[in-house]
Structures are given as structure tokens and as C-alpha cells.
Simulated assay, not measured.
Amino acid sequence: MAVQAATRVLEVTVSGCYAWRRRGPTARQVRHALLTETIRQVRVASRGTYGYRRVHAELRLGHGLLVAHGTVEMLMARAGLRGITGRPKWRRARPDLISSDLVDRRFARDGVDQLWVTDITEHPTREGKVYCAVVLDVCSRRVVGWSIDASPTAALVTNALGMAIDSRRPPAGTIIHSDHGVQFGSWAFTTRAKQSGLVPSMGSIGDFYVNAVIESFWSRMQVELLDRHRWRTRLELANAIFDYLEIFHNRRRRHSALGWLTPVEFENRSTITVA
């Protein structure tokens, strides 16, 4: 019944339907099947990188096969084969997300939560690199926000900024200063800053001293922690960074710029109040 119903819908005879089922594949179908298998072999040999243009060239020059570009493209599409595209490009930040330099190397502040600086550093382990973003208060030198991840994404810096905002509740007008890294020009980072009343600032391009306070911080961390060991796993290094930032740097390390007080001691003085 199913065959008879199908033949009525398609307006063909029952005998013609059974004859079609008995026929083998056409010469074109056989050729396409063989070509598809050869294309798969070419793709394997290219380590999965070739698109249809290079596959076509290899079929013609390497295998001596005469086949049209369109046929190769069609067969690869049917088989779900495609070449590797070029490296993903960073999208340039829109002009409204590029901030001017509101600091101009003048980092001195007489109170906390007036100026924060932020940046990213990286360090290798046997498993791969670890990236750390830090937000530093320039008055007390305290790390007020940080984030650690296996890749330097916008989420890395946005999470560090979010931690700083949640823990400090800064007043409107606090400056968050960075370099022109694409992460700091991202929509996520800029929106998080502006929604919390922060004022984004970016130093001039190509100026080593544009973020001198946090560059000095990274230099100390490199000497005092990162370069002292050969780190095996990302987790091992992440735990060590956490201990350095929260325990050693903020609470135990005495800073010459603070009259040899620790950042926490400096902020706890009666003349300094956290907003």
C-alpha cells in the first residue's frame, strides 16, 4: 500500500518504481563517490587544512584528475568538509569605547578610590600559560580586584574590575586607567565601568610609562614570585598568585611608598578612609 500511495503522489507507475529500485548507481554517482573518497584522502594529507581550491589543485596536479572547481566544492559541501579559515582578527574597538588619557603620568593621589590602574600579565606553566588581571589602588597600592584565567579575554579584565567594584563600592568619578589593550576597549569592560560610575582612562600608545605604577607592581611580582619556581600546573600557579596578592602583597609586604606600611595598614590609619 505504501508503494502504491507513493506512486500516485509522484504520478509514476508501480512497475517503474520497482525498476528504479533494481537499477544500480549511475556512472556519475560512482564517479562522485570515488572523487569524494579521494578528496577525503587529500584532506587528511593536508592535515585537515585544505579548502576546495587547494583540494582541486591537488586533484589536478598531484593526482592527474580532470575535475571542475564547482564539482569539488559541491562534493566537499555534501561531505561536510571545509578548509581552515584565516586566524580570527581582533575587532577594533569603536571610537566611543576609546578613552582619553586622564592621568598623563600623574599618579599621585591623596585618598583611596580616586584612581585605579589595571593591566594583564602572563606566565608559563608546563600545562600552558596563566593570565592574571589586577586592579590596583594607586594611593594605598592595594590590590582591590583580580582575576586569573587560561586566556586573556575581555572576561578576564571585566571579572577583575567587577571584584574591585563589589568590594570597594567606589564613589562616582573614580578613574580606572589602563593601556590600549583590546580587552580594556571591549564593550563588556567599558560598560561595567561606566554603569558603576567609574571613568575609563587610557594612556597614550607606545608610552612605556603610561601605566608605571602597575608595571612596577608586575616587576616586583615577577621577582618575588613568578620567576622563583618552575610551575607544573595552572592550578598550582593560580593558587600561588592568589596567596601573593591577598596574603603577602596586601597584608604583609611593606612598601617604601607607604612609609613602610602594608597596604591594609595604610588604609586602616585614621587619616585614610575607604569610600
Score class of each variant (00 low, 15 high):
M1L: 09
A2P: 10
T7G: 00
V9Q: 15
E11V: 06
V12D: 06
V12S: 03
C17T: 01
W20Q: 12
R22Q: 14
R23L: 07
R23D: 07
R23P: 02
A27D: 13
Q29V: 12
R31K: 12
R43E: 02
R43N: 11
S46A: 15
S46N: 04
G48P: 07
Y50Q: 04
G51H: 11
L59P: 09
R60W: 05
L61V: 07
L65M: 14
V72A: 10
V72W: 01
E73K: 12
A79M: 03
G80W: 02
T85C: 02
G86L: 08
R87G: 05
P88V: 02
R91Q: 15
R94A: 15
D96Y: 07
I98L: 15
D101H: 08
D101M: 08
V103R: 07
R106C: 10
F107L: 07
F107K: 09
A108V: 14
G111F: 00
V112Y: 04
D119N: 12
T121I: 10
E122S: 11
H123F: 15
P124G: 09
E127H: 02
E127K: 03
E127S: 06
G128H: 09
G128M: 01
K129M: 10
V130F: 06
C132W: 00
V134Y: 00
L136G: 05
D137Y: 08
D137V: 07
D137H: 12
V138T: 15
R141P: 06
R141F: 11
V144K: 10
G145N: 09
G145A: 12
W146Y: 15
W146A: 11
S147I: 00
D149G: 14
S151P: 00
A155I: 11
A155M: 11
L156A: 02
A160G: 12
A160D: 06
A160E: 03
G162F: 03
D166N: 14
P170N: 09
P170G: 05
P170D: 05
G173K: 07
G173N: 06
G173F: 01
T174I: 06
I176F: 04
W187C: 03
W187S: 04
F189N: 03
T190F: 00
S196T: 05
S196L: 08
L198I: 09
G206C: 13
V210H: 14
V210E: 15
I214K: 01
I214Q: 14
E215N: 13
E215V: 06
R220A: 09
E224F: 07
W231F: 11
E236S: 03
L237W: 05
A238I: 03
F242D: 14
F242G: 02
Y244N: 07
L245P: 00
E246A: 14
H249D: 02
R252Y: 04
H255P: 03
S256W: 07
S256M: 08
A257C: 08
P263N: 02
E265V: 08
N268R: 14
T271F: 07
